[in-house]
Design a protein around this nucleic acid. Structure first.
Lengths: 342, 342
DNA sequence: CTCCCACGCTGAACCGGTTAAGCGAACAGC
DNA sequence: GCTGTTCGCTTAACCGGTTCAGCGTGGGAG
């Protein structure tokens, strides 16, 4: 009864029950091969002994799971530093994975080559059962790579451009329309969007929808690109607000950039919202802490994380990959938007 | 060759080289037991075949590395959502681990029991080579648990209260003194600190240092506790600013709470900095994006992450555990602090 | 020439599970 | 009463590595 007891194995259970190793395995996995009576007895002993399966050993048998999902986040460190989106996504994924005793292996890289290497290594070493892919790019080479590795995967993004991989997508276009109509109704006719990097698929989708929607309400709808960091948004906003016919409304592709934009407006003496309206794409606590509070397109990112984790669990289980749609973002009007007051 | 080649095992290498399984193992692990010539040949074949070790199999036999470090973050989801600290730490850890092909296994839980379970399971199944412990509490039971599990570990926090575990600590006390002297020099005599949860060790250390420092300059130095979220700080700040003799300076234990405090001041018509000075403990891009920009105690959290990852790598390698000190936080004066103007 | 040891390698056990094959007993069908 | 089947379990191989004991060989020392 020492302090450093070896943890029980199925062999220990077998000895205690007076049966063979195999019988214990059948019993514990709910498979036929043992009588109901013996099964009960074995389960009881396992419980008494505090037995827990060794995923490591299980993974070794053909077709076994290793009990881990991989995710690579390929963003420059400074971009990741402040963005709530990522942390919220992580939280959602974790809560879902925890329920099935699955670990998340996370890798943060700052170049695409390292990301590809991670997938290759994970597949070769059987370190993960599947991967979650985020930040889908246009013609993303990772899709073919992961398909080639025969690694179960779910893409957060799309639809489209994900090959045969199932994806979890959002109807960004309708949220874009909602935002544009809302701003148009407030009287705005020069609306500029400070978007994320052009290579992201969802950036392009939003841009197309934005152009269509602004044209639809007879407004000028330009898009400039930044990289999700506050600094990049600060530069872009300074330039935009210095224009002769500066926009009267700005839509930022994330909350950090919107925050930066608000700061620049303040610094340049442009009042929000009487002279400039600001909309943030992702909502987070930040948007409500700042004054004026930021009107935002709120998505339940935590729920997204849960969903995508559920999907990868299914895919790992061998289910047919079926793409799903998340709840679309909803506009949360707050203090940073309003009618123009000359 | 076929599209779906089974990945090579050491047995395949052994066959190709005409030697035994054991010899291949010795050769690949750089251990004595094979001639230099044979080793070269085996390594060449392994390279040609594209062999990669199966961590799963390796973990099964006693004494092998699995190439993964575990970290549990036990904070309520909403608290984690916005805080840059965590993401920056993660980034630092990752950059360091990536250089040694080590994976990070991350678990986000919201109760201490689940955290303990994670350590136990990881240790029992040999899923990780070591763990990084954050958010050290007073009389933290995790220390004894992890020591008992004989799991290599490094604590981010301390010094003190970490038993025999090595830790990476910061001299918070001197930063506290710097902040208090700075505020006192500006004329502040009622300084209140909105701290993190009282159960964290670093919270207590800062509180003690704060009481001493404020007493030293003849100022009133109260501490109230919040939970690092914007909401909790909003409530606390509203209460504090409504007091008859309200504080003239507030020190918040993280950037998100400082942001919330700034919002409340604005909402209550208290001008920052002419009527109220605000200091944020951790610095981040947020502090510079907001107006007025927030005076902050800047620590290089990314560097902390790198350091702690380096330390756990050492500990896993069997090196003697030696605690280290990180660079202390430096005060970054910005727009949110200034002399009182009646 | 002999003895001993170091070297380089082999064979087999082992880690903790899963699973196919086999086997005796009970039981049903004809 | 004999055959065939099903049930309940055992045996043993297997997953992909690591590691220890053993063994033949060659070389140096005496």
């Amino acid at each position: 009864m020492g302090s450093l007891m070896r943890r029980p194995t199925i062999m220990d259970i077998a000895r205690a029950a007076g049966v063979s190793k195999g019988a214990v395995s059948y019993a514990l996995n709910g498979r036929p091969g043992v009588s109901e009576e013996t099964r009960e007895r074995i389960l009881g002993i396992a419980r008494d002994l505090g037995w827990a399966p060794s995923t490591t050993a299980r993974a070794l048998s053909p077709g076994g799971r290793v009990g881990a999902i991989g995710m690579v986040v390929d963003r420059p460190a400074h971009a990741l530093g402040v963005e709530p989106f990522f942390t919220q996504l992580l939280t959602g994924i974790e809560t879902e994975l925890a329920s099935s005793d699955t670990d998340l292996i996370l890798r943060v890289t700052d170049d695409a080559g390292a990301e590809a290497d991670a997938y290759r290594r994970w597949a070769a070493e059987r370190r993960v059962d599947g991967v979650i892919m985020v930040d889908l790019r246009i013609d993303d080479p990772r899709v073919a790579l992961v398909e080639g590795l025969a690694l179960p995967a779910v893409v957060l993004g799309g639809p489209g451009g994900t090959g045969a991989l199932p994806c979890l997508y959002t109807d960004d276009a309708s949220s874009v329309r909602e935002v544009v109509r809302y701003l148009a109704a407030l009287g705005h006719r020069r609306i500029t969007r400070v978007a994320g990097p052009a290579e992201f698929l969802h950036t392009r989708d939003r841009t197309l929808a934005f152009e269509e929607a602004t044209a639809g309400v007879g407004a000028a709808g330009d898009t400039v690109h930044a990289d999700y960091t506050g600094e990049s948004a600060t530069r872009a906003t300074r330039r935009l607000l210095a224009l002769a016919d500066r926009p009267t409304a700005l839509v930022f592709d994330n909350d950090v950039m919107a925050l930066a934009g608000l700061g620049v407006a303040h610094e340049m003496g442009v009042d929000v919202p009487s002279q400039l309206s600001i909309v943030a794409w992702d909502d987070s606590a930040l948007c409500q802490l700042v004054r004026p509070s930021l009107t935002a397109v709120a998505r339940d990112v935590v729920a997204c994380g849960r969903q995508v984790a559920g999907m990868i669990a299914e895919a790992v289980g061998g289910a047919a990959p079926r793409s799903r749609e998340t709840a679309r973002g909803e506009l949360q009007p707050r203090g940073s938007t309003g009618p123009l007051e000359p």
